[in-house]
Structures are given as structure tokens and as C-alpha cells.
Write a protein that binds this DNA or RNA. Structure first.
Lengths: 199, 199
DNA sequence: AATGAAAGAAACCCAAC
DNA sequence: GTTGGGTTTCTTTCATT
């Protein structure tokens, strides 16, 4: 097998080698493992059913907090910060990845900088159960960057990033064909996403 | 200076050392402070006013897409995938970081795995302008993992991760002291967060 | 801007403690 | 968990184009 540089357990190539049976890919981060329930940075990444809780000690939490802050931290430096040898740090992290505690490492992009300055939270209320059509739309419209199914009056909470209000309008119109929408444009974040933290 | 392993431009130590003077924010917002506007994975990380757009070519987008998928990808492997030498790839990425296109690299954690299986979207409606009290609460309650200010009936859209419904209730009660809340518990994500993509 | 070479550092594996 | 050795790969710098 080809040597995979800095090959964390979540690396697609490595996962393929180590996790023989992939569940059918269902949207979202292509590289993420199947059947995870995550509520990752910022909002949530739910996928499928919740899984069992993992017992973590203070060192595990230190690893989690460092990597939530900077996912590109080298393992040697991470080890230094948590007062653990590189080997032990690597093994801890490997276990956290294998247990599904760490679900991925992702770069964050400023949408405004790349031409998507209009961000919105769109709530969608369904009359019946045309969920398939929504799923199709989610897959196609890349302006939709997240969709959560929730309790309450609204069935779904959707996030979208658009290049203009006119662009957002087109996205909302497509959603409005499926159910009734309530759209809120985002001014800013008094509290931008921060990762989870220990007890 | 101490060698900094894999020291990307966003590394705190390196940022201080290498980016002496930020160019004054030019463009549409006049004298307003040059802040970050990100709508990162899952929800968005807005902070302050939007900044200027950056012109990106197909190679830049390839870098962005790869690192959104796996932030721990080595630069050599990234270069291989986009058909560029490691040096050129590094320089491209350095520019993207310096321009504020890439705002960070973050590990995603499965909240259910670490004892926070209850995720909720809480909308908060303010009667007046007791924003300071909200900001204090946001800073203190680590269950609140994001807060967006939005247009519409509700002033804020808040995300929270709690260990139980009783735990969530306590968080909601604290918010309800400031304004009227509407809470939706998250079932799952038909479309978990996926990063932005090019045109 | 991209390339290629070279030095130092990091990732990895493994054995021993 | 730690240490240390040995190997491969990665990061960074710099000269070159």
C-alpha cells in the first residue's frame, strides 16, 4: 500500500483500507464516515442515528480542544501542549478517530471572500411528506450548505450562502415550491461557532 | 525563532510574527472595521462587517475544496491532487490564508459521543435592546455553540448542545429571561454541513 | 508564479522498558 | 506511557526559470 503522508484514520484512502464496508454515501462531506451523528462546528452534522457515548478523560479533552482550535497542529506539537509523548498522543488521537469522536478535519472558508456574501437561515414547513423532492433539491443546489430536520412548527432548518439577494431569492423560490418558508438573512455572529467543550 | 512544525499562516504564533500590517480594509464599507465574515461549516461564523471579495481561479478552488474535505491533507499530497508542486501549493495556500479566504482549520467532534446528544436551534426574540446581557450569557454558557443575529421576527438564532432535555431546558430558561424563545430540537441532518464551492 | 533541490522536522513503525 | 532508533515523507527555504 502506498504510504499515506500524515494519514489520520479519517483519511479516505486509509478508511477504505481499514473500514471494509462503506455505507451508501448520503450527502454532505464526502469523506465523512457513514452513520454519524455530529453537530460539528457551527451547526451540526447529523447523519443517522445517535451512537454510544465515549468516556473521555482530561487528556482526551485537551486533544479535542486543541484540534478544534487548529486541526493542522502537528502531533508532536500537540503532544507537547498536552504533556504527552508523540507516540501516546498519536495513539490517543487514533482511538478518538476510531471511536467516532473526531469525525473530520475541515478548513473554514469565508463565504464573503469567495463571492457568497449573503447568508440566510431558511425554515421550511411541509404540508405532507414530499421529502424526496427536498432531498433532490438539497443535493443539487450547492447554495444550500446545511439542512437540519427539527421538531416544532417547521420541519427543516436550512442554511444557504448566496452571491446576492436576487440569488437567495431564487433559492428560496425553489424551496417555497415544496412548502412554506421563513427566511432570515444573517447580519453577523455575536458568537461565531465554537467547538464543544468538556464538563 | 523556534521551528514551528507545519506552521500555516493562521497559526497564532505565526500570525503575530509574519503579518505585520494588515492592509486597510478598502471598498464598500468605508471606515468600518475590517472584520471576518465567515459562514463556516454548518452554520456560519460571522464577525463584524463583510470584507472584500478575492478573485480565485480554478486551482484556488481546488485547494479550497480539498481542504474543506480534509484539513490535515499534507501540502505535498494536496499539490499532487491539483497538479502543482509542493512549493507552489504552499505559496497558493499562504496567499489564501493571508487574504482571509481560509479562516481556520478545525476538527469536528460528534457531540453525542462526548455526552451532548441533545442539539437544538433556539430562536430568540428581543423586546428591547438588552444585548449586553445576552452577550454575557453567550460567553458563559458553553452549551451555546453559536449565535447568529438575523433579520425577521426573531433577533437571534442560537445553537446549543446539551447532555439531556433537562439540561437543554435550563439553557433555554436562561435565554427566556432575556426574550421570548422558540426552541426546535434537532432530529438529524438530511444534509449535514458541506463547504462552499466554486461557481 | 512554478519548479527542483536540500536541510531539518514530522510521521511512522517497532522494540524495549 | 515513555524512550530511542531507523526509515520514509513532509515542510520550508532558496536559487532558478
Amino acid at each position: 500500500m502506498r504510504y499515506c503522508p500524515r494519514p489520520h484514520a479519517l483519511d479516505p484512502a486509509r478508511r477504505a483500507a481499514k473500514v471494509p464496508r462503506q455505507a451508501p454515501a448520503a450527502g454532505g462531506w464526502g469523506s465523512l464516515p457513514p452513520a454519524k451523528l455530529h453537530f460539528g462546528p457551527f451547526t451540526g452534522i447529523f447523519r443517522g442515528m445517535p451512537t454510544d457515548q465515549v468516556t473521555l478523560d482530561a487528556t482526551d479533552w485537551a486533544i479535542i480542544e486543541e484540534l478544534q482550535r487548529d486541526a493542522r497542529l502537528p502531533l508532536t506539537e500537540l503532544g507537547r501542549r498536552i504533556n504527552l509523548s508523540a507516540s501516546a498522543t498519536t495513539e490517543r488521537l487514533r482511538r478518538l478517530e476510531a471511536a467516532g469522536v473526531v469525525t473530520g478535519y475541515h478548513a473554514f472558508i469565508d463565504p464573503a471572500k469567495v463571492g457568497l456574501p449573503v447568508l440566510a437561515v431558511i425554515r421550511l414547513k411541509f404540508p405532507g411528506s414530499r421529502h424526496e423532492r427536498l432531498h433532490d433539491l438539497l443535493a443539487q443546489r450547492r447554495e444550500i450548505i446545511e439542512c437540519l430536520r427539527v421538531t416544532g412548527d417547521d420541519c427543516y432548518v436550512i442554511r444557504a450562502a448566496a452571491s446576492s439577494m436576487a440569488h437567495l431569492e431564487r433559492v428560496v423560490d425553489e424551496l417555497a415550491a415544496l412548502g412554506s418558508t421563513t427566511t432570515s438573512v444573517v447580519y453577523g455572529a455575536p458568537m461565531p461557532y465554537r467547538g464543544v467543550c468538556g464538563p
